[in-house]
Design a protein around this nucleic acid. Structure first.
Length: 635
RNA sequence: GCCGUUGUAGCUCAGGGGUAGAGCGCUUCCUUGGUAAGGAAGAGGUCGGCGGUUCAAGUCCGCCCAACGGCACCA
């Protein structure tokens, strides 16, 4: 038999007979590895451990520690779950069942039956029973004709549609237990390693993600090699739930939502402090960079929106009204308004770049099913700005912007930022030459700012290329915040111009940009990022003075007086000290200043830090100094 | 917008055809305290809205609204 050379990840090479399987190689290395092995990577392709390797290859045995190992594990779990579901509901039609980042799902047409959480338990039980029985996953090559006949007999239009799109004459099927599925694989060798599984939820999902197609039931689940890992995962889910900004917003009395205004947040006094602090902060930064602030109307004539193109492209998302028999629209974006400020006087090349920023309140008719706390609302305030410049100025402007964006994210503790450059799509407006110039300017800017970025070919807007900024929060979830979008359309539509050094009229380029995106959404992200423990400068109440008894209220007020440059409250309730501390802690107030007789006698306070505990007794001035040393970008 | 689930006191939730429940919060009283819940009493609800079935509906049925989980959407 021919021999082949197998190269391992560490670079070492071993010789094996051709046709050896991954499992045999794993066993050759060590029995413990063979036990843990789930799949094998063969020259960048993930294979079953039972599949014969016939040529020289670079391999890596995959275990639960490898993302690809997890994928195979969950993919196989999806098959077992489908088998369990078919056991109880033999008439279901399976569509697709892939692994995902956290677990797996199977899209299933349940016909008449409504699959609900009541079904979960019995499916989970059956699943574990099947997994424990030690099912093997056997890969078989089936002629496509045979596969089609198989699914025709089973009356499964979904699998037939998938088959139609496979060009090959032979397709692969996987057999495990009583289950058969058209599947590319790879799978784990034996189901015994799956020790724990939980169905997480069910949801409707369109076949092939198209809203015109029938809706299937998507069953989400996750599985693990041990019960312990499942427990930990469920615990993590709960922790994430605790950080939900909707919940914390309610607990801390920051904002609320009401039936009377779906998608329209009500900001309470404490939330307003955060909102205003953010605005003050952003305003200060922008004014330092030669931006000028403007404010444009919320309601503007529909003539304007027809001219801007929003009426044709964005009508579905706009609200309309009328005034004295004339038609108006509520602005969904600030850009058209900004152009009026630009046009209010003849601009010269010496005026450029002109940087106009607006904390613009926009309204958008989001589909009802899309609303989600502060993350997706129907009214929000963008930290918007429009920069009017010459094509030659794009690069320097974008460099400045990139630095600004990174500076600002850093202040909120967003250190990991991914940057994406989206280039010209198939449908676009404007000259090819200016597109190329603009895209090059963006690339140059990114490179000069020494930013790593990913190009998203063809993902730009029809009116210009753009750069997007995605940050990662403390739970490593990704959030798109900032965007820098070049626009060749708006200057054209509104006939914007400036007089160049040559005395002739020229067309400026418009740069739309937002850094936080929307203040409302950003606060939601910040709450989840910090679990509601906002930094000192953003905390609605910074210090709570807690008198040990009613008799100490006068001294508490005297102390509060001396701390008045901070947002300070005095707890005058006739509760025990323990209760007052508990209340301040649950309200996530950064500092507690505790005063009793002893402190009063020496003009001192006892300081306690939220989440940390007692910092000890000190002079009032020393406490003041502690607060003054807290980070404050507004100083 | 689509599919599914949910809607009971300010908040978190139990109850499930026959007089509406708990804890927290709120009010009052007692207690005056030393680093995460002191004690007692009281007030508070057209059980999301509108219709229907029934002697009787918070409970069963239909429609609507909203929230939640996904999908679709996010020029």
């Amino acid at each position: 038999m021919a021999e082949i050379q197998i190269t391992f990840p560490d670079g070492s090479v071993r010789t094996y007979p051709s046709g050896i399987t991954g499992m045999e190689i794993a066993k050759d290395i060590s029995t413990s590895l063979a036990k843990k092995a789930l799949a094998i990577k063969v020259n960048d392709e993930v294979w079953d451990l039972t599949r014969p390797i016939e040529r020289d290859a670079k391999i890596k045995i995959l275990t639960w520690e490898d993302p690809e190992g997890k994928m195979a594990f969950w993919h196989s779990s999806a098959h077992i779950m489908a088998e369990a579901i078919e056991y109880y509901y033999p008439d279901v039609k399976l569509a697709i069942g892939p692994p995902i980042e956290q677990g797996f799902y199977y899209d299933i047409d349940f016909g008449e039956h409504k699959f609900t959480p009541e079904d979960f338990e019995k499916i989970e039980k059956k699943f574990l029973e099947l997994a424990r029985s030690g099912e093997t996953f056997v890969r078989k090559y089936i002629p496509k004709e045979e596969a089609i006949a198989f699914y025709k007999k089973r009356n499964n239009p979904y699998k037939l549609e998938i088959l139609e799109q496979i060009p090959d004459d032979t397709v692969t099927f996987y057999y495990s237990g009583n289950f058969v599925d058209l599947c590319r694989g790879p799978h784990i060798p034996n189901s015994k390693v799956i020790k724990a599984m939980k169905i997480l939820n069910v949801a409707g999902a369109y076949w092939r993600g198209d809203a015109n197609n029938p809706q299937l039931t998507r069953v989400y689940a996750i599985s693990f090699p041990s019960q312990k890992e499942l427990k930990e995962y469920l615990h993590k889910l709960e922790e994430a739930k605790k950080r939900d900004h909707r919940k914390i917003g309610k607990q801390l009395q920051l904002f609320s939502f009401h039936e009377e205004g779906p998608g329209f947040p009500f900001w309470h006094p404490k939330g307003m402090i955060i909102l205003n602090q953010l605005k003050t902060f952003m305003r200060k930064r922008l004014l330092q960079l030669d931006y000028e602030e403007i404010q444009t109307p919320i309601i503007l004539s529909d003539v304007l929106w027809k001219r801007s193109g929003h009426y044709d492209n964005y009508k579905e998302n706009m609200y309309f009204t009328s005034i004295d028999d004339r038609d108006f629209a509520i602005k969904p974006m600030n850009c058209p308004g900004s152009t009026f400020v630009y046009r209010s006087q003849q601009r010269s090349y010496q005026d450029l770049p002109l940087r106009l920023f607006e904390f613009g309140l926009v309204h958008r008719h989001e589909p009802s099913g899309a609303l989600h706390g502060l993350f997706r609302v129907r009214a929000f305030t963008q930290d918007d700005a429009h920069i009017y410049c010459t094509p030659d100025q794009i690069e320097q402007e974008v460099i400045q912007l990139i630095h600004l964006v990174f500076d600002i994210y850093k202040i909120f503790g967003f250190e990991k930022v991914n940057v994406f450059l989206s280039t010209r799509p198939e449908k676009y407006i404007g000259d090819l030459a200016i597109w190329e110039k603009a895209e090059n300017a963006l690339k140059q800017a990114l490179e000069k700012a020494e930013v790593n970025y990913t190009i998203q070919e063809g993902e730009g807007a029809f009116y210009g290329p753009k750069i997007d900024f995605v940050v990662h929060d403390s739970l490593d979830r990704a959030w798109q915040l900032g965007t820098i979008q070049l626009d060749f359309s708006m200057p054209e539509r509104f006939d914007l111009n400036y007089i160049g050094a040559d005395g002739q009229k020229h067309r400026p380029v418009m740069i739309h940009r937002a850094i936080l995106g929307s203040f409302e959404r950003f606060i939601g992200i910040l709450i989840e990022h910090t679990a509601g423990n906002l930094p000192f400068w953003l905390a609605p109440i910074q210090v709570a003075v807690l008198p040990i008894s009613d008799a100490l209220i006068p001294y508490a007020e005297k102390v509060a007086q001396q701390l008045q440059k901070f947002r300070v409250i005095v707890d005058r309730s006739s509760e025990t000290l323990n209760k007052k501390i508990r209340n301040a802690e649950t309200q996530k107030i950064p500092y507690m200043v505790i005063v009793g007789k002893k402190e009063e006698e020496n003009n001192q306070v006892s300081l306690r830090k939220h989440g940390k505990g007692n910092l000890g007794v000190m002079d009032i001035t020393a406490a003041l100094e502690v607060f003054e040393n807290e980070f404050d970008p507004l100083k």
